[in-house]
């Protein structure tokens, strides 16, 4: 095995396969330069693994409160969006019911009444009532 800083780093990380680890150990036995490099890397590892003494800022509780306020607002936005969707969903759900109402016998009379009153029927009712009228008319003819 040739000298390799990368291999030494991976060796220190414990991330080499067994055979590779053995190869590095064997190499270290005969290479003072790599042994020196390894000791320097160990020192670096020690420094990097020290828990950093981080000064905790006094503003942290304020940051916590800000985060809660933002999360609350985000939650309310989500409910708002859902409400609008619920309303649209309800309108969609009722449409077949409204169309179905127009199948009730007497829809032709509804049309007559609407004309007498000077108002038009809603499109869904008008269409179905006209069809209902044709069907009822045909049945009467049959009889």
């Amino acid at each position: 095995m040739k000298c390799s800083t990368e291999a030494l780093q991976t060796f220190l990380d414990g991330e080499l396969e067994l055979a590779e680890t053995e190869a590095v150990r064997s190499h270290l036995g005969g290479c003072p330069a790599c042994r020196q490099e390894l000791s320097r890397l160990r020192l670096l590892w020690l420094e990097l693994e020290q828990e950093d003494e981080v000064e905790i800022p006094a503003a942290l509780p304020f940051i916590r409160q800000q985060a809660i306020t933002k999360a609350r607002a985000a939650g309310q936005d989500k409910i708002g969006t859902s409400s609008v969707s619920l309303w649209n969903a309800q309108k969609l759900a009722w449409q077949p019911v409204l169309a179905g109402v127009s199948r009730i016998p007497g829809t032709r009379q509804l049309g007559l009444l609407a004309r007498l009153a000077g108002h038009g029927l809603p499109g869904a009712i008008k269409g179905v009532s006209s069809m209902a009228g044709k069907i009822i008319g045909k049945r009467r003819d049959r009889h």
Binding site: I63, R64, Q66, A67, I68, K70, A71, A74, G75
Partner: peptide, 9 residues
């Protein structure tokens, strides 16, 4: 702050 909001939401 960004991280804490993401945690809660």
């Amino acid at each position: 702050q960004e991280a804490l909001v993401k945690v809660l939401t």
